[in-house]
Deep mutational scan, measured.
Amino acid sequence: NCLEGLIFVITGVLESIERDEAKSLIERYGGKVTGNVSKKTNYLVMGRDSGQSKSDKAAALGTKIIDEDGLLNLI
């Protein structure tokens, strides 16, 4: 459970895995996936064609922004 207690938001199109697979992977390792960035969000996983508003909010809140490889490296 290397992601225990961590909260993730996924945005954009992921290249190597589907969004549902990424969500399942995060949950399997103890993390939680939500739909919107908040002060409780630990990581924003940004894929291709992701919206600017979520990354702006993450930056404003100090949320770590990672890509798909960054997510896989956490596991």
Rank of each mutant, 00 (worst) to 15 (best):
D67A: 03
N1A: 07
I26Q: 00
K57T: 13
M46N: 04
G35T: 15
K23A: 09
K23S: 06
S16I: 08
A22L: 15
A59H: 13
A59M: 13
T41F: 00
L3V: 03
E18A: 14
G12S: 02
Q52E: 10
S24C: 11
G30V: 11
I17A: 08
S53Q: 13
I26H: 00
S24V: 11
G51N: 15
S55M: 15
I75L: 13
I26F: 01
I75R: 02
D67M: 02
V13Q: 15
N1D: 07
K64Q: 10
L6P: 00
T11G: 10
G35R: 15
E15W: 04
G31F: 01
T63D: 00
T63Q: 05
V45I: 09
K23T: 11
F8D: 04
R19K: 11
V13P: 13
E18Q: 14
L71Q: 01
I65C: 08
Y29R: 08
R19A: 11
D20Y: 08
E68P: 07
L74R: 03
N73G: 08
Q52S: 14
G12L: 01
G12P: 06
N73C: 06
V9S: 12
E15G: 09
C2M: 10
S16W: 04
I26G: 04
C2H: 14
S38C: 11
G51W: 09
K39V: 09
D67R: 06
G70R: 04
K40V: 08
G35K: 15
R48M: 06
K40C: 08
G31Y: 00
I65F: 05
K57F: 10
V13M: 13
R48E: 04
S24T: 12
D20I: 08
S38E: 08
G62N: 08
E27D: 03
I17Q: 08
S38A: 03
M46A: 12
E4A: 06
S55F: 15
K64M: 09
R19G: 12
K39P: 14
G12E: 04
T34I: 09
Y29S: 08
I75C: 07
D56E: 12
L14Y: 03
L14T: 05
G62W: 03
